[in-house]
Design a protein around this nucleic acid. Structure first.
Length: 640
RNA sequence: GGAUCCGUGGCUCAGCAUGGAUAGAGCGUCUGCCUUCGGAGCAGAAUGUCGUGGGUUCAAAUCCCUCCGGAUCCGCCA
């Protein structure tokens, strides 16, 4: 919206110097940027540098020519008051009295939809996240996964996609079998559950204990037997399923308190028995790139020949085993089948039931469905799967396997699905001494569970609020409500504000921080803005005011510019799967509001025209900030 | 051995995709702003060979190569 008049003017002015072709059009489009400082205007173009070679003139001269041409054809209607050539750059200066008018009417008209677009065109994306083994509580590393996935889900909704969030429960894996082995052996008698201990926390301790016993006696083969029993013995299966279900429900409590919700729980055992692997195998067998190996070390295995793809040519071993010689498919084969199922390429005969009504931080309810082993489905379920796009949120250590999943689709000639398979990969959360690994059990680092981080942050926030709001001592319910919301905001923001390629170093004082580049900083800016409108007598505020560009301060201009770019940030963050872009934006927006707050008095403004203008700036800010917080899943509160 | 990612003030991180104006934040330190539209804030100061060495370019934190340091992956494990 801000760029369009700039592009039009540039194109017209440049056409006087050189013939416009699509390449130049694109170069003009890409040349627009935000200058480092407002002394260089509000928008600038470095197109003169790009034209230096074809025109065989210096960028400085070109910039001056273009700028002169623009000033000849300039009319104020587009909001641009003048241009200036500086050191080869062409800088555009806006008249904010005009520009703000436009953005204000757009923001107030669209209100809580400001920033949304329909580029998804109702296509469907399935986002899988969390997906932890149901034997332990959620730790801070899992929480990073969940929050990244949750924000990406919100982003896709804002981009007009239908979103379905899956959480895969691996109840057929080695970890569950280990736990079940321990329970069948009666090891729970040695790990007594505390009276207030959360169920998944206790299971986690028990699971850890099981591992240590197996390690001591080097008796891992006992787990192999349980793996078979779980599959073959209905009584043991049901026992396992009940334990897993209880663990998942305990995990869900943790997720919900952090504002994370799901649409569908996919149970690995249901998936395994639904026939999707067999169906997938039939499809794979039709391709000559997947075959049953008859000789060599892989004899008797069903393998994929990845060496046909340039991406895998330098691999030492281009053959990836999908089915072992004993007939059991590998993990990656399951993942390929699962991916095919999510795309609707194979039809699983799954039965579903509605488990819970989830309530998120905006008090909206959302049904949580689950696959089930019940003989008869409880209710008719909504359409599951049939995705146009898939995003799997999985740690970077699984990048190779996710590549195999994706490229298997390519080998099958499923180019469309190949292009729409995304792996949102992120690095681990680490402590100075230990890396939290769910596998080995050393995740059991004190205070690194999601619930513990929540509690620690809660306590820090509670102390802070006790100091800042002594008046709330009389209203403990309100105080707890605010503390809870501040905690959710702090933890969410902290886990989302790092690039996914950065390994987060877990330090409790960073995680629980409430000042500076944090969630509460954003929430506080919003509260401050609300308080202005609360306090001012709106009936005396001028709705039609006259203001000149020169009486609009730099802080006001910067804040208004932030309003403009929000819709672009929503698009960019979704297409790059980088929630950090939203946290950065939210922080900038709040920062500029705070600077505005310090320098531009609203209630005691110099005159009623300026006051009317500033009231509208505050109103626009509230809408944009509200929407950013919504995308981040940070609670929107009116006092703190 | 092969592959991928990371290395930016004392600490924790943005920026790199698509090369452009004085390399940005937050924390910590120091100085100011409590006659507060709510100080979880604001203004200012100090702190940088953007790991090293080369290359490409009018221009490199950003692209290419070398080396150093760190992480991860390359199972008939899941």
């Amino acid at each position: 919206m801000l760029n369009e008049p700039v592009i039009n003017l540039l194109t017209e002015a440049i056409s006087a110097l050189i013939e416009i072709n699509p390449d130049i059009e694109e170069a003009i489009l890409n040349s627009i940027e935000t200058p480092p400082s407002l002394e260089f205007g509000e928008r600038s173009s470095n197109i003169a540098f790009k034209l230096a070679k074809p025109l065989r003139k210096s960028p400085v001269v070109i910039a001056e020519d273009v700028s002169d041409n623009i000033n000849k054809i300039l009319s104020i209607d587009g909001g641009i008051s003048r241009t200036e050539a500086t050191k080869g750059y062409i800088n555009f200066f806006f008249d904010f009295s005009i520009v703000f008018d436009k953005i204000y009417s757009q923001i107030t008209t669209e209100d809580e939809n400001y920033g949304k677009n329909n580029s998804g065109n109702s296509r469907k994306i399935v986002i899988e996240h969390t997906s932890i083994n149901p034997v332990k509580p959620i730790h801070i590393g899992n929480l990073r996964n969940s929050i990244l996935g949750d924000i990406v889900a919100r982003l896709y909704q804002w981009n007009g996609w239908e979103v379905e969030v899956h959480n895969l429960i691996d109840d057929f894996g080695r970890q569950v079998a280990t736990l079940i082995w321990g329970l069948l052996e009666g090891l729970q008698l040695n790990v007594i559950r505390g009276s207030n201990e959360k169920y998944d926390v206790w299971l986690g301790r028990l699971y850890s204990y099981c591992n240590s016993i197996l390690e001591e006696n080097d008796s891992w083969n006992k787990v192999d037997k349980v793996i078979v029993d779980i599959r073959k013995n209905p009584v043991i299966y049901q026992f396992m399923r009940n334990i897993s279900q209880a663990c998942v429900e305990s995990n869900l409590e943790t997720a919900w308190r952090h504002g994370i919700t799901y649409d569908y729980l996919v149970w690995e055992s249901d998936i395994s028995r639904s026939g999707i692997w067999e169906e997938t195998l039939q499809l794979l067998e039709k391709s000559e790139l997947f075959f049953w190996e008859e000789e060599g070390s892989n004899a008797g295995c069903f393998v994929a020949n990845l060496g046909k793809l340039p991406e895998f040519q330098d691999k030492k071993n281009p053959f990836k085993i999908f089915v072992r010689s004993n007939g059991v498919p590998t993990y990656v084969a399951h993942d390929v089948a699962l991916q095919m199922w999510k795309f609707g390429l194979v039809k699983a005969s799954l039965k579903n039931r509605c488990l819970f009504k989830q309530i998120n931080e905006s008090k909206n309810t959302r049904d949580l469905w689950s696959s089930t082993d019940y003989k008869i489905p409880v209710l008719k379920s909504p359409m599951i799967g049939n995705a146009d796009r898939i995003c799997n949120v999985i740690g970077v250590e699984q990048a190779f396997l996710q590549d195999i999943v994706k490229y298997s689709l390519k080998l099958l000639g499923l180019e469309e699905q190949f292009q729409n398979s995304f792996h949102l990969s992120y690095k681990h959360v680490s402590a100075p001494a230990v890396r939290f690994s769910g596998r080995t059990g050393n995740w059991y680092e004190e205070r690194a569970w999601a619930d513990a981080v929540f509690e620690d942050t809660y306590n820090t926030a509670f102390t802070a609020i006790s100091v800042k709001r002594p008046d709330l001592d009389q209203n403990i319910t309100k105080k707890q409500e605010i503390t809870t919301n501040v905690t959710i905001g702090a933890v969410r923001y902290w886990l989302a504000r790092f690039s996914t390629e950065t390994e987060i170093k877990f330090r409790i004082e960073d995680a629980t921080s409430l000042e500076g580049d944090t969630g509460p900083f954003l929430m506080y800016a919003y509260v401050r803005a609300l308080k202005i409108l609360d306090k001012i007598d709106l009936s005396s505020v001028k709705e039609k005011f006259r203001i000149e560009n020169k009486s609009i301060s730099e802080q006001e201009k910067r804040l208004i510019l932030e309003f403009f770019i929000f819709p672009e940030v929503i698009k960019s963050a979704a297409s790059s799967f980088q929630p950090i872009q939203i946290t950065k934006y939210a922080f900038d927006l709040a920062s500029w509001f705070n600077k505005f707050y310090e320098t531009s008095r609203v209630i005691s403004a110099d005159n009623l025209d300026i006051q009317g203008f500033r009231v509208n700036v505050v109103k626009a800010f509230l809408i944009v900030m509200h929407n950013v917080l919504q995308v981040l899943g940070i609670p929107i509160i009116d006092e703190m």
